[in-house]
Amino acid sequence: MGVLASKIIGVGSYVPPKVYKNTDIEEMMNTSDEWIVQRTGIEQRHWVDSKTSTSDLAVKASEEAISNAGLNKEDIDMIVFATLSPDFDFPGTGCFLQAKLGMSEIPCLDLRQQCSGFLYAMSVADKFISTGTNKNILVVGAEVHSKGLDQTPDGRNVAVLFGDGAGAIVMSAAEVNDKKSEPCFIDASLNSDGKYAKELWIPAPGTGFDSSERMSQEMLDEKLHYPQMNGRTVFVHATKRMAESLGALLEKNNLTIDDVDVFLFHQANLRINSKVAEMMGIPEEKVFNTIQKYGNTTAATIPLGMHDAMKEGVLKPGMLVASAAFGAGFTWASALYRV
């Protein structure tokens, strides 16, 4: 008699068509292609037009994932949506996605765990499925960063990092005899440390000010509605926590680096991923990177990478995948799953 588990049965992704190469934003932000590539590994990113929202990107990725799974929209019984760039403050973007997909009455859950969001979302979906509550869950990561970036020299240290995009998977119930050898979601580690929340954040709008308003002209003048980051602190914590979390998860499941076929890390900075691989002794050929063409798409990054790896023949059925992510909060996570 096997055990109830969840497995990935469909994958989809979408990026807006407009590409902004580093050379396209050099004058805009008083920067250079050489500077960006050297410090981040990013060569280009995709940014939306004025009419496109986060849920619009999510629709296309979701439709592809559902089709790839061989299911109809009516077969989906829950949506878990990870994003830090919602269409609106409320309601959650999962509700807008649900309406655009033509679904009704199934539960929608939004997660705001930034760069760790998709791994949190996978873990949440796995719990609903493995307890028998749901059968087919659409898990989405989507972001529109470009509309919230300071695209001037003042904001270049952050603005050059981010791109827009969406990725989605369908996780479905399956009975397995051996979770480690059969395709399924194996295990995850989720963590956070809120004392670093202001090292990477957007202060405004919000209720945390000594003000009767969530947004004021003064906040706008101070550009508090744009992302702020302590880059060095983020780098130090990201490399440490990603390696620490993934190492502990492998040990917990009696697995080693050699057992893993593909490492799909969150793509925030190529230097971070290279450092994590070096610290853990991961062969370069096992790490699949996409930051060079998409930039940091936060919650969309891992499903985008998963789909690209599949399309390029790097990730094949039956392979064991290890993922790790680190982001604002600070939050970090790792996961093991076989596709």
Rank of each mutant, 00 (worst) to 15 (best):
V314H: 05
K179P: 06
P303F: 14
E64W: 01
S85D: 09
D221F: 09
K240P: 00
V144Y: 01
S146Q: 04
E64R: 05
P16Q: 05
L4N: 10
K18S: 08
L71G: 07
W47F: 13
D49Y: 06
K127S: 14
K252M: 11
D87T: 09
D259F: 13
G206D: 14
S274F: 07
T152N: 04
V15L: 06
E199A: 11
I25Q: 07
G318C: 10
H266L: 06
M310G: 05
V144E: 03
L200T: 01
R39T: 06
A188Y: 10
A99G: 10
M242P: 06
G10H: 02
L84Y: 11
K195E: 10
A142F: 01
R338V: 07
K180I: 08
E213F: 12
H237P: 00
G132S: 14
Q228F: 12
T297R: 00
L249T: 04
S123D: 15
I25C: 04
A142T: 02
S32M: 14
L250S: 08
P205E: 10
A335I: 08
S334P: 01
D154C: 02
D89K: 06
E244K: 11
N72H: 12
D33K: 08
N191C: 05
V276F: 03
H46V: 01
Q292G: 04
